[in-house]
């Protein structure tokens, strides 16, 4: 499969294995096409999860990870791409309906935007919340005090 993908996508795809699990690191520019190919030609019809990892010291600060599964092949792969802070990704809601909430959670926790998402807004945190908690520069003790003071009427939730 990887060799076939390499032919269509060129050298932007690196296939790796760790602890018996296959994953590929892909250039950001190839993502829209690659996800389509995986869904429609390689039968990865179940998007298990989308998540991100923040590396503040890198130039491209975020790893975005898609975990995909194919019922027909009984195979699981991960697709990883690196993006800059503030860079957006194409939404995969048209490909897998399940990614609606998953992308909203990534946006909520990391502030990564997905273009073309039907309703991109916070999901777990309140709408007016400031900051994105799963970024590494968001301390575990930090809290949106303003939101707490206005909405809960207490000085601080700590």
């Amino acid at each position: 499969m990887i060799t076939k993908l390499k032919q269509t996508c060129g050298s932007g795809v690196t296939a790796l294995t760790y602890s018996g699990q296959n994953y590929m690191v892909v250039d950001r520019s190839l993502i829209p096409e690659l996800l389509h190919v995986l869904r429609n030609e390689e039968q990865f019809d179940y998007c298990v999860d989308i998540t991100a990892v923040h590396y503040p010291k890198r130039e491209k600060q975020f790893d975005v990870v898609w975990v995909l599964y194919s019922y027909a092949r009984n195979e699981r792969i991960r697709v990883t791409t690196q993006i800059l802070d503030g860079e957006s990704l194409p939404s995969s809601v048209p490909i897998w309906a399940t990614t609606n909430w998953l992308e909203r959670e990534v946006y909520d926790m990391f502030g990564i935007k997905f273009d073309g998402h039907p309703d991109l807004k916070r999901i777990l945190l309140p709408d007016g919340w400031k900051g994105h908690p799963l970024r590494k520069d968001y301390s575990i003790l930090q809290q949106d005090k303003e939101w707490v003071q206005i909405n809960l009427g207490i000085e601080s939730g700590q």
Binding site: Y18, Q21, Y23, V48, D49, T51, V53, V65, V67, R78
Partner: peptide, 16 residues
């Protein structure tokens, strides 16, 4: 990095 999942009573429970 590792993704592993099990069949929890409610469905696929995965950890990454």
């Amino acid at each position: 990095e590792v993704y592993h999942s099990i069949e929890a009573p409610k469905g696929e429970l995965g950890y990454f």
